[in-house]
Simulated scan of single mutants.
Amino acid sequence: MSSSSYGPSVLVTGGRGAVARAVAARLAERAIPFRLGSREPGPPGASGASGAPGAVHLDLTDPATFPAALEGIRTVFLYAEAAAIDAFVKEATAAGVEHVVLLSSSSVLGADATENALAASHLAVEQALLASPLRTTLLRPGAFASNALGWAWAMKSGTPIRLPYPGAYADPVHEADIADAAVAVLSDPALAGGAYTLTGPQSLTFAAQLAVLSGVLGRSVPFETITPEQWKADVEGFVPGSYADALLAHWAAQDGIAMSVTDEVERLTGHPARTFETWAEDHAEAFS
């Protein structure tokens, strides 16, 4: 990327997230100047092409933090936070931002997107950006492979994984592929302005994902089937009720029904999407 395309720097939001960290690392490798924004920035200062660990304070729910984070920025890698998106669009436009790459979700493509709490929040951000003067690129990943990290505690403690729909299919995508796709559209103007549905290369049930983890870890990973009500009780206090209901509805709809997968990771990055087995190998330590 040159200053003649999108300007001198990129703002990477959600600085503590796995995808944002991976995007920042790739920008640093390419010597693309960037600023990392985080709700909890840690050491003061802004990351740049050197990949320094500092970050600016940016809370996507607090418009007061927007001006300093956006100063001098021409391109934004944006997490989908709907709470203050109208204020963010207004401030970004005033700051001279030209291009926003949004980390959205393929859930917005569902027929129930406006009624599903998870999908609706992403859709609201998409709509606000598309109605603005900002050139917008939509990255719509399916299920994050890293959702499997939610099983780590039970696996470490030797207790069965409790699943309401072990036969529900997902399209798990490696966070490294999402980051690769993001950097591709951040750095190539020819790719900007599109909407890309990002999936892994396989449609896998939760039971199949656990079997993959079992093979990678070399030990049994048992699970038990529970009712949706039992699962909702398990996650109370961790997952808001409306989001829990949305997840349960999605899993019920995909129970025994394979997901469609796309080749858009390869189209954007030039390499095939990483398999769930590769993800498991990359994160095996988390389950040890």
Rank of each mutant, 00 (worst) to 15 (best):
E236W: 06
P166L: 10
L191Q: 13
P141V: 09
T197D: 07
F206L: 15
G142Q: 06
N147C: 01
P164F: 02
Y196F: 14
E236L: 10
A170T: 15
I178A: 09
A184T: 08
Y169E: 09
L163M: 08
Q230D: 14
D180Y: 07
A246W: 04
A192V: 09
A184S: 14
E229D: 14
G150A: 01
T159E: 15
T225D: 01
S214M: 01
A207P: 05
L149A: 06
S203M: 12
V221D: 01
G150V: 05
F238G: 02
P201E: 09
Y243Q: 13
K232F: 04
Y165V: 00
E224F: 00
R219K: 15
G194N: 05
A182F: 07
T197F: 00
D234L: 15
A143L: 11
T199S: 13
G200P: 08
F223C: 05
A145D: 01
L213V: 03
T227K: 05
E175K: 05
P222I: 08
A181Q: 08
I178D: 09
V239P: 00
V183M: 04
Y243D: 15
S146I: 07
S203T: 13
F223M: 02
T199I: 05
A152R: 11
P166V: 09
G194W: 07
G194A: 10
G218S: 09
D234W: 09
G237I: 01
W151Q: 03
A152P: 03
G237E: 06
P164I: 03
V216H: 03
S220E: 15
L186V: 08
A246R: 03
A181L: 09
Y165T: 01
S187M: 10
V185K: 10
A207E: 14
A170V: 15
L204D: 12
A182R: 03
Y165H: 14
F238R: 14
A190I: 05
A168V: 10
V185C: 10
I178T: 12
P201G: 09
Q230L: 11
L163H: 04
F238N: 11
L210R: 00
A208C: 04
R140Q: 15
P164K: 04
I178H: 11
A207Q: 12
L213I: 08
F144N: 03
A179H: 03
S242K: 13
L163E: 02
G142A: 12
P160K: 11
L198N: 07
A176N: 14
D177F: 08
G167D: 15
A192N: 02
P164Q: 10
D245A: 15
E229T: 11
A190L: 11
E224V: 13
G237V: 02
A192Q: 15
L248M: 12
L248K: 00
V235H: 12
A182T: 14
A179F: 04
V216S: 00
A143V: 11
A145V: 01
A244N: 07
F206N: 13
A208F: 02
G215I: 04
A176W: 09
K232M: 14
A181I: 07
T225C: 01
L217W: 06
A195D: 06
R162A: 13
W231N: 09
G194V: 06
H174Y: 07
Y169G: 08
L191E: 01
K232V: 13
T159R: 14
P240F: 07
G215V: 05
W153N: 13
L247G: 06
Q209H: 01
T205G: 04
A168C: 10
F206H: 14
A176C: 04
A181H: 04
I226L: 10
G215Q: 10
T205L: 06
G142C: 07
